[in-house]
Design a protein around this nucleic acid. Structure first.
Ligand SMILES: [Zn+2]
Ligand SMILES: [Zn+2]
Ligand SMILES: [Zn+2]
Ligand SMILES: [Zn+2]
Lengths: 156, 156
DNA sequence: ACATATATGTTATATAGCTACATATTTAAA
DNA sequence: TTTAAATATGTAGCTATATAACATATATGT
């Protein structure tokens, strides 16, 4: 009996369309509106293999030579970040799409490669606990966490 | 036999002068030059009970109405950060003097209170290990760590 | 005293993010 | 299904943060 090995849809395009579908669902569930502009910003972030600045996005989202008004991009980013669909990297003044892989795994950190510019979102229960204990031991009520580690990735 | 309880020099002014003396020693050891400008920037940071922006420093360091050239402040900050005497808080675009208390205790994090603006530099071996393991498990060579936790402090 | 490296002064510019207010679109109520 | 309210976008100008480029001054080592 022969077995057919089906190629899983792991191409970049396929992964992105999965992410966008997830975003649609999430927003529907939250009664939040993933408008065309917001969707295009998210899509552009997913299509990029490195973080994009707000003005990069503004340029990417307008036709040749022109550029979308920066405020429009900032408003879309604010929405996406609120929904947990994107992150701001404070050390780069740039933005990335959230990785599905890290959903609901608690405290996430970003590994930022200075050589190739790539960023990966990672987490560990150990890290989550350490941060959590740090809060507790200082009676600090957390709202936002910013964990960015800069250096060289495995490949560089 | 009577015992004289000597008041320890724990006033703010005394603590600051200890910190500045430490800075002098450190720079001497590193053959780095703690020039008057750099020293004044560091002193101003120590005198503040909250982080200061570069332009705040520029205003504070020039006589009434005038302001030091921003680039001068940025150059001084760059020096202080290189020497480990100050930190940049990326989530605030602001700067703080390093706490002596955290010297050589590995990875430090900052607890930033949104209500009162205070910042404390904290650490734990647990946090240090968690970050360290995260690096290792992703074959990532770290250079800089950015750990900022925003919320409400014990007092607020 | 000289040469070199380091630090500061001066001016202009780049980059990032936001305010204010008008218009359009969507949603919910009447 | 009008109407009203809430939400989103357009447009213009502005504020805040950070750096580039080049000249001058000061310190350091020979
Ligand atoms: Zn995420
Ligand atoms: Zn890399
Ligand atoms: Zn420190
Ligand atoms: Zn507080």
């Amino acid at each position: 009996m022969t077995q057919t090995v089906v190629q899983q849809p792991t191409s970049k395009a396929a992964l992105i369309s999965v992410s966008l579908a997830h975003a649609e669902n999430l927003c529907r569930a939250n009664r939040a509106r993933l408008t065309p502009i917001r969707r295009r910003v998210l899509e552009t972030l997913h299509n990029s293999n490195r973080p994009l600045g707000a003005y990069d996005l503004a340029a990417a989202l307008a036709p040749q030579g022109r550029r979308m008004a920066p405020i429009t991009v900032y408003r879309a980013l604010e929405f996406l970040i609120e929904q947990g669909l994107a992150h701001r990297l404070a050390s780069l003044n740039a933005y990335v799409a959230s990785s599905q892989a890290n959903d609901g795994r608690g405290t996430a950190a970003f590994l930022i490669c200075e050589a190739c510019g790539s960023v990966s979102e990672v987490s560990s229960p150990e890290l989550h606990d350490a941060v959590s204990n740090l809060h507790k031991s200082h009676s600090f009520s957390p709202r936002a966490r910013l964990l960015e580690l800069t250096g060289r990735c495995a490949h560089c």
